[in-house]
């Protein structure tokens, strides 16, 4: 087996609050192999959001190590983390988070701007990714002109554009109806079959069922880690 996409060792994070130091995450060990589809579950306040922020290189841990594709990123500077987010990780958010003033094509191409990619190539690759999520005809449209499900597809296209090894999805179906949710999850499953590792945060068991492995958090600790029953999928 090749190197793990994600390996955390004793990953901890504390926040300073008015009441003193609050440990949001207390030593999490988790390894995710290439091509895995992992669902992270847990009640609010369980530390799963903190964990996702750390996985997404948006934040640095108070202690412990985080190896992203073999590289320890626990103590990198802000700009180095930005470069990792740009090239290694694709983000999909609950609220889609597209920029409303830009066309879909420009939205999808935005990560390439920060990768200093030339304009023609940006356009070409953005169109290819839009086609991949089934929105090839909407390149010039604005986010406000399409449905929520379509917006989430555009967000996925944006996450895919730098060919990341890892997609982090934070409740990607939270704002969608069940039919559209199914479409989005099917798309994730497709991408996973193409070899991209996916880590997904969700509340809903039927959404988690798309993942091959389910991880549960409680009080800042990882409390269960098991494969999804094959029956539950499909």
């Amino acid at each position: 087996m090749s190197e793990a996409v994600i390996r955390t060792v004793g990953l901890s994070k504390s926040y300073l609050t008015a009441a003193g130091s609050f440990p949001a995450l207390r030593g999490v060990d988790l390894t995710i192999a290439p091509g895995e589809f992992v669902a992270i579950m847990g009640p609010s306040g369980s530390g799963k959001s903190t964990f996702m922020n750390l996985l997404g290189c948006l934040d640095t841990p108070s202690s412990g190590d985080y190896f992203l594709v073999g590289r320890n990123v626990a103590k990198l500077a802000r700009d180095e983390l930005a470069a990792l987010r740009n090239r290694r990780i694709g983000f999909v958010f609950q609220g889609f988070n597209l920029l409303p003033r830009m066309s879909l094509e420009d939205n999808v191409a935005l990560p390439l701007v920060y990768a200093a990619c030339p304009r023609d190539e940006r356009r070409q690759r953005a169109r290819r990714e839009l086609a991949r999520v089934g929105l090839g005809d909407y390149a010039g449209a604005r986010p406000s002109q399409i449905s929520g499900g379509q917006q989430q597809r555009v967000a996925i296209a944006r996450a895919l554009i730098n060919s990341p090894q890892l997609i982090l999805a934070d409740e990607p179906t939270g704002n969608l109806d069940s039919h559209t949710s199914t479409e989005i999850m099917t798309l994730f499953a497709d991408l996973n079959r193409q070899g991209i590792s996916i880590v997904l945060v969700t509340h809903e068991a039927d959404i988690a069922a798309y993942a091959g492995r389910q991880v549960r958090f409680r009080d800042g600790r990882l409390v269960s880690d098991q494969p999804t029953q094959t029956l539950a999928a499909c």
Binding site: R78, A82, A83, R85, N86, N97, L99, P111, Y114, R158
Partner: peptide, 16 residues
């Protein structure tokens, strides 16, 4: 602010 957050998440460095 939110736009800035999005840009940072997808890889904008501080200098960008």
């Amino acid at each position: 602010t939110r736009e800035i957050g999005i840009r940072m998440a997808i890889g904008a460095r501080q200098r960008d």
